[in-house]
Amino acid sequence: MSDDGIAIKLNAEKEILNSQMLKFFIFIKVIGNNISFPMCSVELRRHWSKFENFHMMSLGMNWILCSFKSEEAMDEVLNDGPWYVGGYIVGIDKWSSSFNPNSFKCITAPMWIPLPCFPLYCWDEENIARISSRIGVPMFIDGNSLRWGKWEFARVCIRLNLENSLPNGVWIDGIARRFFHLVEYEKIDLLCFHCGKVGPDKKVCTEVKKVDKAEKMSNKQDLVINIPENKNSDQE
């Protein structure tokens, strides 16, 4: 912004034209550290080999922009998954003018969540879907979860909004009792255990800043300043 605070007015017609050109574009973010663009390009092209004529380009800050020739191909990529690169989950969303490379706003990812030691009287498709809907949008359940002899844990794929804090469990009210059940998240490398969100650096996490500020205030209160006493010189 200039010193006088005057904003530049953009050409609205050009903005609309550019937006129309971007209507089959998606943003991609691999939720992992040090994943190079060439590696992302190779693995995603392998995953999406049935779609022809799509193009990927690096936007910096580990963001990738991918264009498709048809809305059908784009929607299938958005609604399918989970997608992985190097074992890390891929966050993905349709292009929007509100895109901010410093934020995960509107970025979602299909993700598997295991529910270990799941109570057997909750073990059916409807109740598993109800429980997982507290965390995200249920997509489908691992077929092994509903088979006899495969009941070590339930496993369901849900679509998560990566901007939201991810709970470490959910409260369940069943016929026997009300209890808290832990939830696990598969292949998330950048989950902040302070704020529960994906991606934030510890240096910029708001919850870490609150704790650091509280500790500094506490240290200031505990600090004792020792002022040496004035000693009168001996008089003869």
Rank of each mutant, 00 (worst) to 15 (best):
S2T: 08
A7P: 09
I8Y: 08
L10C: 10
N11T: 05
N11M: 05
E15D: 12
I16K: 12
I16G: 07
Q20Y: 09
L22V: 00
L22W: 03
K23A: 06
V30G: 06
G32M: 04
N34F: 10
I35A: 07
S36A: 10
S36R: 12
S36H: 11
M39C: 05
M39V: 11
S41M: 01
E43K: 01
L44C: 03
R46W: 08
H47I: 00
H47K: 06
W48V: 00
S49A: 04
K50T: 05
F51P: 00
E52S: 10
N53H: 03
H55I: 02
G60Y: 11
M61N: 15
M61E: 14
W63V: 11
I64F: 05
I64R: 04
F68S: 00
E72L: 05
M74C: 06
E76N: 07
V77M: 01
N79V: 04
D80M: 04
G81L: 03
W83T: 03
Y84F: 13
V85C: 03
G86H: 05
G86A: 08
I89T: 15
G91R: 02
I92E: 00
S96W: 00
S97E: 14
S98E: 15
P101K: 13
S103Y: 07
F104G: 00
C106E: 13
I107N: 07
P110Q: 07
W112R: 04
P114N: 07
P119D: 11
C122P: 00
C122R: 04
W123V: 07
E125S: 09
E126L: 09
N127V: 06
R130Q: 12
S132A: 13
S132L: 01
R134C: 11
I135H: 08
G136F: 04
V137F: 04
V137H: 06
P138E: 04
D142I: 09
K150P: 02
A154Y: 04
A154Q: 07
L160I: 13
N164A: 13
G169H: 12
G169A: 12
W171P: 03
D173H: 08
D173V: 00
A176R: 14
R177Y: 05
R178D: 02
R178W: 00
F179L: 07
L182Q: 14
V183C: 11
E184D: 12
Y185F: 14
Y185K: 06
I188H: 03
H194T: 12
H194E: 15
K197Y: 11
G199I: 06
P200R: 06
P200W: 09
D201Q: 13
D201I: 10
K202V: 15
V204P: 03
V208C: 14
V208N: 11
K209G: 03
K209Y: 11
K213W: 12
K216G: 10
M217N: 09
N219Q: 14
K220Q: 13
Q221Y: 05
L223I: 10
V224W: 00
I225E: 10
I225H: 05
I225A: 01
N226G: 00
E229P: 01
E229F: 03
K231N: 04
N232C: 10
N232H: 09
D234Q: 14
Q235E: 15
Q235G: 11
